[in-house]
Design a protein around this nucleic acid. Structure first.
Length: 458
RNA sequence: GGCCCGUUGGUCAAGGGGUUAAGACACUGCCCUUUCACGGCAGUAACAAGGGUUCGAAUCCCUUACGGGUCACCA
């Protein structure tokens, strides 16, 4: 049975690249009817951030990635936290020494000329590390996406397996844990490609079966570099804060370094669990394109019902519009299909609370032939009729009929009366809705007031 | 710098010896429209370069260039 794993270290937020690795591991396991395990790699005591563990659980949950085994839910291969497996690493490293594939090293960390390999020390009294003994020759490993890669062993270093603090290094703990957790497929970023031969040497020395490697191409930022904390495009949380939906982020990310079997791009997680496969993985690094993420996010809003959208938009709406006399549901609906991110709600509705200052030019519209003059004419004639309009009948259908009747009575095209109203109510060149919608959300009193203001400008 | 990996439009990418070299985002234009959007239609735009191999190369090989990764008692 296929077993994959996600092995983050609890050092902070969830990097987009790591999230994608988790996602791919999860999807692959689901697709193949396998198991996806979560293992916490907390061997670096110095970088350990206690809250990060919860962050990992939370992120996976929000993203919809469900692990089958892990520290929180257990499993047959626990414990799933490396610090709790500490003893086994030392034991295995010493076994490796017996096998002639490792040795004790008493040098200080970072020390250059190390003679410990030649010295063949017995277990030292004082502080020591254990290093891997790289044999001469060359090593070939096979990767499902990159194929066969061969390197000269002379390029490899006698890497540290057990640190002086008794903790294993990432590279060693990984090998030991993957073996004892029966991991069959190791998915990780391609930055680990250079250290993979050392893994093989370790597996070979132990006589353990070598797992299938699946290295994933890197995700780059628009400038060709790495995604960065500073630019705010490195972490899953960054994008949530910017008003992106978890589903859209996940959907977008899965398309980075992997392409679906058909031309479709919008997939639910459940659908991805059916179609994801290593065949679609690519070797070349890909650039994270915010514009496409935005488009995709917008698609998710459009596909959503107004009812489902409303609670998502509510907090942003509350920040954007303070006045109480506006129907929130109507606003929410008005905005739903017009935004790429929830954050845009504020900007798109900035005319609701306070009418922006504008000049007579606003009423110019080449296409419908509106001019400040026609606008003034229409609005001044409309105003008294509008004031006479019964407030209790103020709703879209009636408003629209009222306006079209008015236009007909004046003998002009609808747009010649609708356009100036839209301008008067929004004070902007574009607004999330036309005249009827705006009249409807503002209600009679505010609408009349704004039209009066417009007449003053005109 | 050594080693490793990569290179199809601005971006994501399909395609793996014979294609008019898909599709999506972005961009442009037109249509629709009660603004702007949405939607519909159309368009601009690519096989890094040079050598081979082959009847035939985006696809295979080599070289170069460029980009990235890696060379920690970090992960």
């Amino acid at each position: 049975m296929m077993r994959t794993r996600f092995a983050p270290s609890p050092t902070g937020f969830m990097h987009i690249g790591n999230l994608r690795t988790a996602l791919f591991g999860y999807l692959l396991a689901r697709r193949m009817g396998g198991v996806f395990a979560l293992r916490i790699e907390d061997t670096d005591i110095g970088r350990y951030v206690p809250e990060a563990l919860d962050k990992i659980y939370e992120t996976l949950k929000i993203a919809g990635i469900k692990h089958d085994e892990g520290p929180d839910i257990g499993g047959n291969y626990g414990p799933y936290v490396q610090s709790e497996r500490k003893d086994s690493y030392l034991k295995q490293a010493e076994a490796l020494i017996e096998l002639g594939a490792a040795y004790y090293c008493i040098c200080a960390p970072g020390e250059e000329a190390c003679n410990c390999r030649a010295a063949g020390l017995a277990r030292p009294e004082g502080p020591y590390a254990i290093r891997q003994l790289i044999p001469p020759g060359q090593t070939t490993f096979s990767d499902l996406v990159y194929g066969e890669i061969t390197v000269e062993n002379s390029e490899l270093e006698d890497q540290v397996l057990i640190k002086q603090d008794g903790m294993p290094t990432y590279n060693f703990a990984n090998v030991v844990d993957d073996h004892f957790m029966a991991i069959t497929h190791v998915l990780r970023g391609s930055e680990y490609l250079p250290s993979t031969p050392k893994y093989n040497l370790l597996y070979e020395a132990f006589g353990w079966p070598i797992p299938t490697y699946v290295h994933l191409p890197l995700i780059l930022s628009a400038d060709g570099g790495k995604l960065s904390k500073r630019r705010g495009d490195a972490f899953f949380e960054d994008f949530l804060e910017k008003g992106f939906l978890p589903e859209a982020i996940v959907n977008y990310i899965v398309l980075l370094g992997w392409s679906p079997p058909d031309n479709r791009e919008i997939y639910t997680l459940a659908e991805l669990e059916q179609v994801f496969g290593i065949e679609g993985l690519s070797k070349a690094p890909s650039t994270f394109d915010l514009a496409k993420l935005k488009w995709m996010n917008g698609e998710y809003f459009k596909a959503m019902s107004g009812k489902n959208f409303e609670p998502l938009a509510a907090p942003y709406l509350a920040a954007a519009v303070k006045r109480e006399d506006i129907n929130r549901s109507a606003l929410s609906l008005m905005v739903k299909d017009r935004i790429a991110t929830l954050l845009e709600i504020r900007e798109i509705l900035d005319f609701i609370d306070v009418l922006p200052e504008y000049g007579a030019d606003l009423f110019m519209n080449k296409k419908n032939k509106s001019t400040p003059e026609t606008a003034k004419d229409m609005l001044s004639k409309l105003l008294p009729e509008m004031e006479a309009f019964p407030a209790e009948n103020w709703e879209s259908g009636a408003i629209y009929k009222f306006l079209t009747d008015f236009a007909e009575a004046q003998g002009v095209k609808n747009s010649l009366v609708l356009w100036p109203i839209r301008c008067a109510l929004s004070g902007k060149e574009s607004s999330p809705g036309g005249a009827t919608e705006l009249l409807n959300v503002f209600g009679k009193n505010e609408s009349v007031a704004r039209i009066k203001q417009a007449l003053e400008v005109l």
